[in-house]
Design a protein around this nucleic acid. Sequence first.
RNA 1: GGUCGGAUGGCCGAGAGGCGAGGCAAGGGACUGCAAAUCCCUCUACACGGGUUCAAAUCCCGUUCCGACCUCCA
Length: 465
Amino acid sequence: MSALNLYDTATREVGVFSPLKPGEVSMYVCGATVQGAPHIGHVRSAINFDILRRWLTHSGYNVTFIRNVTDIDDKILQKAPQENMQWWALALKYERAFTQAFTALNVLPPTYEPRATGHITQMIELMQILIDNGSAYAPGNGDVYLEVRKLKRYLTLSRQHIDDLQPAADADERSKKDVRDFALWKAAKPGEPSWPTPWGAGRPGWHLECSAMAHAYLGESFDIHGGGLDLVFPHHENEIAQSEAAGYGFAARWLHNAWVTQSGEKMSKSLGNTLHVEVILQKVRGIELRWYLGGAHYRSMLEYSEGALSESAVAFGRIENFLKRATEILGKTPPISMSEAFTDAMNDDLAVPAGLASISENLRLGNQAITDSDASAIAVNASEIRGALSILGCDPFDSNFAGQATNDLTHALDGVIQLALKERAAARERKDFAASDSIRDGLLALGITIEDTAQGPRWSIMEKS
RNA sequence: GGUCGGAUGGCCGAGAGGCGAGGCAAGGGACUGCAAAUCCCUCUACACGGGUUCAAAUCCCGUUCCGACCUCCA
C-alpha cells in the first residue's frame, strides 16, 4: 500500500506525511467567525478537512481534530445592533447555523470545538510570555502588540518581505512601534465587551486565539494546521509569529483549501456573491451538495454553477441507484472495503478526482455484474464504492443520511405500489399496453418511477431536482 | 510595487516529460412491447510565441488574459 503524501504550504511541496507521535495525528483547523450564515465556500473548507480527517482515521491514526469558533470580533460587534441583538446572541445564532450546515453535510463534529471567549485566560498567559521575553509590548492604552521586526523570521509561509507589503489602511496607529506590528489584544472602546488583563481591559485580536487554543489542546507542536487559502496571510503568519516568539514549535505542516468561485471571483461576503448553504439545500440534498463540493481537489478553485451542481447530483444518483439495486440483489448492505485505486488516489495528496474515476470504474463493472447476475462481482464493486463514499462522507447508508430510507410508510407504500404493479403485469400479459402504460404514467405523475429489470419491476421515488 | 494561483475538448474536470484520467452532453449500437435503467462503440484538448529534449499539455524564456492576498475573509 502506498504511503500518505500531503502538500505543505510552507515548502510548497508534496511529501510523505509522518506524524510527530506514531499513530497519532493532531490537527487544528481555523473554523468560522460566526458573524453570518454559512455559504458554500465555508462548508467546502469544512468538507475538505473532514475528508482528510476521515482518511487519516481510516489509515489507522488516532486523530485529535480541533476546529475553533471565533465568537468575538469586530464584525460581530458591528452586526449585533443591526440585527438588534446582543453580540453574544448573534454569535451563538450563527454558530448554530454553521453546526446545522455541518450536520446536513455530514461533517463530523471535531474532537473539540473551542470558542475564543472561553480561552481568555490562555490568551493572557500567552501575552504574558510574549511581553516577558520582549517579543510583545503594551503601549499603555490597553492594546498589546507583537513587535514583528524583532522576530527571527516572519512571513515565511506566504514568502513575502515585510518591506514589500502595501502600507496598512490603519497605519496611522500612533501607539505602534512599527506599522507592521499587529494587535494581540485590543483595548475596549466605550460600550464594547471587554475582559480584564494586566495591560488593560479589552478583547482579543483575531490571531491570538488560535495560537492560544492550539497550544491548549494540541501542545507546543502539532501535525497539521489547516484553513482557507485566504488565511495564509495575515492570520496564519501571525499565528506562527506569536507561537514561535513564545518558543513553541507550532504546526509541522500547513494545508490550505482553495475557494469556491463565481465567474472566476472568490465567493465572499464583501463581494456579496455568496450562496448560502440553506438556499442550496432547497435545490439538492445534503449528500448531493457534499458530493459536489468534495469532488474537486482541495487545492483547486471550484467554479460554482447551478448546471454543474445539478449534473453532479444526477451522477451521484446513478451511484446511489446502483448501491440500492446491489443491496436488493445481495439481500444485505454491502460492507465497506477500500479499492487499491481509491487508496492510491487518496494517498496522493487527497486526489479525490482520481478517486472519483475509480468509483466510475467500480460503477461500470458493478452495473455489468448486475446484468450478468454475478453476485460476487456485484458485492466487490458495491463494497468498494461504499468504501470510497464513506471517506468522502457521502455513504448513503450512513445513519446521518439514512432515516428517510425505510420506515412504516415506505412499507405501506410498497404494498400499494405492488398492487398497482400486479395490475400492470396482468395488462402486459394480455398485451394491453395502453392500460399498462397508464398505470406507469399514473405512478410517474405521483413522482414514482417504474423500471423493468431482469429481476422484475422496481419502483423508486424521484428525488427533488 | 510585493507574493501567489490559473488558462486543457461542446461543457465540467484530472494529470505535471513518453502510454489521450474520469464524468456530462452528442452520434451510433445492444437490451425492451414501449419507456426507464444499464452496457458497448465513436468523436472533439492542452491560451499564444520561442527554446530545451530522441520525446513537451507537462521543463525553460517571453507574451496575453483571468483571479487571489498585502492586516475583514473559508
